[in-house]
Amino acid sequence: MSLLEVRDLTMQFGGLTAVDRFNLNLNEGDIVGLIGPNGAGKTTVFNCLTGMYAPTSGEILLSGQRINGLHPYEITRLGMARTFQNIRLFKQLTVYDNIRIAFHSQSRYNLAAAVFRLPQYAKDEREILEKTEELLEIFGLYEHRNEIASSLPYGEQRQLEIARALATNPKILLLDEPAAGMNPQETEGLTNLIRWVKERFGLTVFLIEHDMRLVMKLCERIVVLDYGITIAEGTPEEIQNDPQVIEAYLGEEVL
C-alpha cells in the first residue's frame, strides 16, 4: 500500500478547473518533484493535499485513510507537513518559539495541567524543550534561537520553516518551492539538506520547484503539470526529453 495515494483529484474555482484529475502515488522513502509553468496548479495540488482547499472531486488517501475534507490541522497530525511558497513563519516570534509551537500536537497535557502546573505539564514541556534544541542544532540554528524569525537571512528562514515542519513529526514532507529566491550556492546547500533530512527522519518528500538543477538532482520521479493537467510523469531523464514538457515550458516553436 502506498503512503499517499491521490486518485483523480480535481479542483474547480467557479468555471476554472485549476487541477484536473491529478493522480499520484507516493511510497515510503520516495522523493518526487512536481513541476510546471507558473499557474499550472502546483500549489493548488498542495493546498488540496493539506486540507487548505476541499477538493471538488477525487480521493486523497494517506496510509489508506481518506483525508479529503479534513481540516489542515488534522492532516498535519496524521503525518503530512508542509512549507509555503512565500515563507509563512511566525515572523514576530523567536526562532525558538517558532519550533516550539510546532510541537503543539505532541504535548498531551490539557488546560488544567497548564493552569495548575501538574507533573504532566513539566514532563511534556521538558520534552518539547529538548526536542526543540535538538532540531535547532541539526539545522545549525541554535545560535539564532533567541532572534526574531523575520530578522534571519532569507536562506535561514527557509531552513527554519523546514525545521518547523519537521517538528510536527511528519511522514510526508511537502515543500513548496524551497529554493525560491536562493542563489546557486544556497540551492546547492539546500539540496544536500533536503537529502540529508530525508534520510535522518525517514521522510517521504514531495516538492514543487522551479529550480531544475535541484529537481533533477534530487528527485527520483517528476510529475509535470500544465493548466491543471498532468502532461508527463517519469524519471528526470525521461522528463528532460519529453517533447510535451519542452513545449509547455518553451513553446511549440522550439521543437
Binding site: 490541522y73 508542509r82 509555503f84 513563519l89 509551537i101 510546532a102 503543539h104 500536537s105
Partner: peptide, 21 residues
C-alpha cells in the same frame, strides 16, 4: 504553555498555525 503558544500562533499567522497542527 503549549496551549498559550497555540493562542499566539493563531494571532501571528492562522494558516501557518493550522499547518502546524
Amino acid at each position: 504553555s503549549s496551549h498559550g503558544r497555540a493562542f499566539i500562533a493563531v494571532r501571528e499567522d492562522e494558516i501557518a498555525a493550522e499547518a502546524m497542527g
